[in-house]
Computed example of a mutant assay.
Amino acid sequence: MLYLLNTHIIIELGLFIFILLATLYFYFGIQKSLQLARKARIKLLGQEALATILFIEAEEGHPIKKPFKIQIQVEPVMGRNFVTDLTDLPKSVVQSVKVGDKMHVKFLPKNPRKVIFIRLLSID
């Protein structure tokens, strides 16, 4: 009985992701829709962790790339700490953060390198 319930939940989640992808593709195109679906999946199923900003780099002269790269050390509740890059911060947050600030992020334990920003914890 429990196996059937879990299968039903997995099917509904898969259907939700499919409908979300189809809708986002219609509005934003395939590249943007895949990015938004990945973020939605991390927000829905991800594990929240504390992260510390280690390095901030401004990438000048690259109009296609994001204008900044922030390296963070993620400290999950369970498991080992890891270092990754964060490039999808809101511009208002990017302008106010500095090395050493802490923030909350979410990531999938199966693929911890893909991290999304949740909220800033401290600004001095």
Results as ranks from 00 to 15, higher is better:
residue 41 R to T: 15
residue 55 F to M: 10
residue 54 L to S: 05
residue 43 K to N: 15
residue 46 G to Y: 03
residue 52 T to N: 12
residue 40 A to E: 04
residue 64 I to E: 13
residue 30 I to P: 06
residue 44 L to S: 13
residue 61 G to D: 04
residue 37 A to Q: 06
residue 59 E to F: 08
residue 18 F to N: 14
residue 15 L to T: 14
residue 50 L to Y: 09
residue 52 T to F: 06
residue 11 I to S: 13
residue 23 T to Q: 11
residue 24 L to G: 00
residue 37 A to G: 05
residue 34 L to H: 06
residue 30 I to Y: 07
residue 23 T to D: 12
residue 10 I to C: 11
residue 39 K to P: 02
residue 44 L to C: 14
residue 26 F to T: 10
residue 39 K to W: 05
residue 11 I to P: 05
residue 23 T to E: 12
residue 14 G to W: 04
residue 57 E to W: 04
residue 29 G to D: 03
residue 49 A to F: 00
residue 33 S to N: 05
residue 42 I to Q: 06
residue 19 I to K: 15
residue 19 I to C: 13
residue 33 S to W: 01
residue 66 K to W: 04
residue 65 K to P: 00
residue 29 G to H: 04
residue 48 E to W: 03
residue 18 F to Q: 14
residue 41 R to C: 15
residue 48 E to R: 13
residue 27 Y to T: 01
residue 53 I to G: 01
residue 42 I to S: 06
residue 32 K to R: 13
residue 27 Y to W: 10
residue 24 L to W: 00
residue 27 Y to D: 03
residue 48 E to M: 09
residue 64 I to S: 13
residue 29 G to R: 04
residue 51 A to R: 02
residue 53 I to R: 02
residue 48 E to N: 10
residue 19 I to W: 10
residue 43 K to S: 14
residue 61 G to F: 01
residue 25 Y to E: 03
residue 30 I to F: 11
residue 51 A to M: 00
residue 20 L to I: 01
residue 54 L to N: 08
residue 57 E to T: 11
residue 47 Q to H: 12
residue 28 F to H: 07
residue 36 L to S: 05
residue 16 F to T: 14
residue 58 A to L: 13
residue 26 F to M: 09
residue 47 Q to V: 11
residue 11 I to Q: 11
residue 17 I to Q: 06
residue 37 A to F: 02
residue 35 Q to N: 12
residue 16 F to V: 09
residue 21 L to V: 07
residue 58 A to K: 15
residue 37 A to E: 04
residue 22 A to D: 10
residue 56 I to N: 04
residue 47 Q to P: 04
residue 54 L to C: 06
residue 16 F to M: 11
residue 60 E to Y: 06
residue 21 L to Q: 08
residue 36 L to D: 00
residue 38 R to C: 07
residue 53 I to E: 00
residue 19 I to V: 13
residue 52 T to L: 08
